[in-house]
Design a protein around this nucleic acid. Structure first.
Length: 644
DNA sequence: GTCTATGTAAACACAC
DNA sequence: GGTGTGTTTACATAGA
């Protein structure tokens, strides 16, 4: 018999998102991110409803228990009073109604099990409602079955009494046997009905079989084994059975199980929860002609019963596995194709390459092909299909340099969506982001309200957004400084507060322009990638309200970072294509913040006539009030100070 | 093989 | 003198 309890792993709400949460990566929510109050109150209400539903369930199950006990007592009284069928074989207790009824009530749950369920508190109200409805349907079926059994048994007993009075006539005996057969058929049909119902429950995730019940002899056989083990066992069973047929030896490895099963078979409790177990003699009447042959070849003894049970468990395990795989596949497909309409519940490490390189080729953009070079044996691998156990902070430490560039390839900057969608991942996992320093610096600057950051603020952004940059500070800070000085796109602006760094979008887009304009295939890829990114952008904007906003509220206390991020995302996604079509000459002012407020070039650069003619404009101190300190919250973060 | 972009390390200068 | 910032150089590597 099986203990049918509700699995906590399959009853999580928000099926798709949570499934992907399990499939992809389990994000540890930072302690600093507090849930808003309404969520707590809603949570409490859900818990109240859950407890209420559990109480109703408990009542229903208790009523079921009482009814079953009454029925059992009634049957025992009938047996004691001698109303037994003289034809009944001990090996064929098919007409023992209590056993059958008990077996047909797989949903009956003991109070201890209910206690476990109540303690688990894993059912959502919707699931409980569905479960209750199905439970009520089962109860109805049960009642009908009980009435049906009673009637059948009364008729049979009546006929048997008549036979005893009238003498045993072969013809009537045959008639009784036929009736018994018909009764068994009806019984089996009802069992199959209930089994189908149970299977549907299991497939819906509302019911599962849980290991860990030592009092159940067959349970380890079915639950503690993987399908291959069950298949192996089944092979042993069949081989043992064939050996028995040929040699007459009836002792095999299965005999232990068989004995175990048979010893527990009379126990009514051991059959209650087993939806697939059948009492002896009740398995062979589905297809009469075929089953008669089976009956003749395989006696309906404990061994056959055990074999059937093993096979049932094999099939059941395979079906469950198939159902799980199907559900997983469906969730993955849903996640991939319906992303634009389904806000993601948890940040997931999507493909972290930039939107352009995503479409360069499917194989290249695949997570397995992400930065992983000989110099970086533990280079970041974007997890997509792995579960939470795959990504561990210890296993993802990356020390080596990044030799492959994704964000700056083909002169397309890093997409804010890339960072925004994966920021939660990078915040917690020490995975090196597959973006260049230049792209990250630019992103940090563009995310700031004034589109300018001090060096220390850039540092803080790195450490805040990426757990990877909480290590080896000297190395990457040096790289940041090196990049700031090296690239002309980063402009140092003198301020009363000190020096701030800004981004010259024109210069940033200038890098390697010839590869974009000169390669039609790349342009085509970029166009297709833009088509891909359009739903991505929509999904991001839709999900930002649910997910990303809290992430930015910590950084945007007092400054509208979110709005800038959203605009930056649009700028990135749209600007990539704009830049693809017209390289650098037609940069719109709205897309390039540095054109609106272009700073003084303090950096000593080789005199370039084109640069000298750039739209330079002084950033006066009036633009930066002394109390302007929108990044103080960055500096206040202890994690940043620890890294210094 | 060459060139470019990038990452890393290091040296150096300067200001506080 | 220590530290942070900024610049520059050198070298290695990947990719076009």
């Amino acid at each position: 018999m099986f203990q049918c309890v509700f699995s906590s792993s399959v009853l999580q709400p928000h099926s798709t998102s949570c499934l992907f949460k399990h499939l992809f990566y389990h994000s540890a929510t930072p302690a600093s991110q507090k849930q808003p109050e309404p969520i707590y109150s809603k949570k409490t209400e859900i818990q109240r409803q859950t407890v209420r539903a559990h109480s109703v369930k408990l009542f229903i199950f208790s009523a079921l228990q009482v009814a079953r006990q009454l029925l059992l007592q009634q049957q025992q009284q009938q047996q004691v009073s001698g109303l037994k069928s003289p034809k009944r074989n001990d090996k064929q207790p098919a007409l023992q109604v209590p056993v059958s009824v008990a077996m047909m009530t797989p949903q009956v749950i003991t109070p201890q099990q209910m206690q476990q369920i109540l303690q688990q508190q894993v059912l959502s109200p919707q699931q409980l409602q569905v479960l209750l409805q199905q439970q009520q349907a089962l109860m109805l079926q049960q009642q009908q079955l009980q009435e049906f059994y009673k009637k059948q048994q009364e008729q049979l007993q009546l006929q048997l009494l008549q036979q005893q009075h009238a003498g045993k006539q072969p013809k009537e005996q045959q008639q009784v046997a036929t009736q018994q057969l018909a009764f068994q058929q009806q019984l089996l049909q009802m069992q199959q009905l209930q089994q189908q119902h149970l299977l549907s429950l299991q497939r819906q995730g509302l019911l599962t079989i849980q290991p860990g019940q030592p009092a159940l002899p067959l349970q380890p056989l079915a639950q503690g084994m993987i399908p291959t083990e069950l298949q192996q066992l089944w092979k042993e069973v069949t081989s043992a059975h064939s050996a028995e047929e040929t040699t007459g030896s009836n002792h095999s490895s299965l005999d232990l199980t068989t004995t175990c099963v048979s010893s527990s078979a009379p126990s009514k409790t051991s059959l209650i929860m087993n939806p697939h177990a059948s009492t002896n003699g009740q398995l062979s009447v589905h297809t009469p002609k075929r089953e008669r042959h089976l009956n003749s070849e395989h006696a309906l003894d404990d061994r056959s019963t055990a074999q059937c049970r093993v096979q049932m468990q094999v099939v059941q395990q395979l079906e469950l596995q198939l159902a799980k795989d199907k559900e997983r596949l469906q969730a993955m497909m849903t996640h991939l194709h319906v992303k634009s309409t389904e806000p993601k519940a948890t940040p997931q490490p999507l493909n972290l390459v930039s939107s352009v390189t995503l479409s360069k080729s499917a194989s290249e953009a695949s997570p397995q092909s992400l930065p992983h070079t000989p110099t970086t044996p533990t280079a970041p691998i974007t997890p997509v299909t792995q579960g939470p156990s795959v990504i561990t902070t210890t296993s993802m430490h990356t020390v080596g340099p990044i030799r492959r560039r994704y964000s700056d390839k083909y002169n397309v900057p890093i997409s804010s969506a890339d960072i925004a969608q994966n920021q939660e991942f990078y915040k917690n996992a020490e995975v090196r982001p597959p973006f260049t320093y230049a792209s990250l610096i630019r992103q940090a600057i563009l995310e700031s309200p004034e589109k300018q950051l001090t060096l220390n603020e850039i540092y803080n952004w790195f450490t805040r957004m990426f757990a990877y940059f909480r290590r080896n500070a000297a190395t990457w800070k040096n790289a940041v400084r090196h990049n700031l000085s090296l690239h002309k796109c980063f402009v140092r602006v003198e301020n009363v507060k000190g020096a701030v760094w800004t981004v010259d979008e024109v210069e940033f887009q200038k890098r390697r322009p010839q590869k974009i304009s000169g390669n039609p295939s790349l342009i085509k890829n970029m166009q297709s990638s833009h088509a891909y990114c359009t739903p991505l952008n929509a999904a991001l904007q839709a999900s930002m309200a649910e997910n990303s906003i809290p992430l930015y509220t910590t950084a945007s206390m007092g400054n509208p970072t979110l709005g800038n991020l959203a605009s930056a995302i649009r700028e990135e996604l749209n600007g990539a294509m704009e830049h693809t079509n017209s390289n650098e000459s037609d940069s719109s002012p709205g897309r390039s913040p540095m054109q609106a407020v272009h700073p003084v070039h303090v950096k000593e650069e080789p005199l370039d006539p084109e640069e000298a003619e750039g739209p330079l404009s002084l950033v006066t101190t009036a633009n930066h009030s002394p109390d302007f300190d929108h990044d103080r919250d960055y500096e206040d973060e202890p994690v940043n100070e620890d890294m210094e």
